[in-house]
């Protein structure tokens, strides 16, 4: 019970929310840092995944990248990148870059594989029909494959985001900012209220982002696809 009251007291104390080491600042650091990583990873993985999925070339490469991503623990990436970035930039190389590199490296495989699998999983008959109708490859990708593959692509972004938020938390143990700082300081100072408060905030952020993606997966759908499934459901009900 002591733990619960300590945690509530810590979370409710306005002094913990403001300032340049407060909850609001740490939350923004965490979100901005994660957003930048996802944006960089998307810039790499989305075009590559679409290209591999559409052309079917280097399909094994995509799968292997994903398998390698799983065997590379985030902590090992942070550790291995750290001496390199620290040598290049003694200031930020110690604090920001190792975690940023790890976040991007870990976000690329899920985005890439889901993009590739989603595009490649689109019914080939549809693609052939589109081609026969005279659509260009670019039109096929934009008009047919991307809308139909939207669900797996979003699923990839979702698991990449969860992964990135977890890695950003870990980054705090290597001099980075973000909500993980409360875990670092709470553990070091044996302040259970702060530690557990940090846990609540980190878990809430991860679950909120996951929940937002679940909503997004329902909302972002091709109107044609929604109509088609609506019609199918109506036919099924009749």
């Amino acid at each position: 019970m002591q733990l619960v009251t300590d945690t509530i007291a810590w979370l409710l104390d306005p002094a913990n929310w403001g300032g340049n080491q407060g909850i609001v600042t740490r939350l923004l650091e965490h979100a901005v840092f994660s957003g930048i990583s996802i944006a960089i990873a998307m810039a790499i993985a989305v075009p590559a995944g679409i290209w591999i999925g559409h052309t079917g070339r280097f399909a094994a490469l995509g799968t292997n990248v994903a398998n390698l991503g799983r065997a590379l623990p985030s902590l090992a990436i942070i550790g291995l990148v750290l001496p390199i970035t620290a040598a290049i930039d003694p200031q930020l190389g110690f604090k920001v870059y190792p975690t940023l590199v790890a976040m991007v490296v870990l976000a690329v495989p899920p985005i890439l594989v889901n993009c590739q699998a989603g595009i490649a999983g689109v019914d080939r008959d549809l693609v052939e029909a589109a081609r026969a109708m005279g659509m260009t490859e670019r039109q096929i990708v934009r008009g047919i494959e991307l809308p139909l593959a939207m669900a797996p692509i979003l699923a990839g972004l979702r698991s990449a985001s969860v992964q990135v938020i977890a890695t950003a938390t870990l980054g705090a143990f290597f001099g980075g900012g973000g909500l993980g700082r409360f875990l670092v300081e709470g553990i070091a100072q044996r302040d259970d209220g702060m530690t557990f408060g940090g846990v609540v905030l980190v878990a809430a952020l991860a679950l909120t982002v996951e929940g937002a993606f679940i909503v997004l997966q329902r909302v972002i759908r091709s109107p044609g696809l929604a109509r088609m499934e609506g019609a199918r459901a109506a036919a099924g009900a009749a």
Binding site: A66, A117, D123, A151
Partner: peptide, 17 residues
Amino acid sequence: IDPGRADPGRAVAGGAA
């Protein structure tokens, strides 16, 4: 089945991961 990866077989049905 990897929780971090969509299931290609169900990709079109939209029930991935």
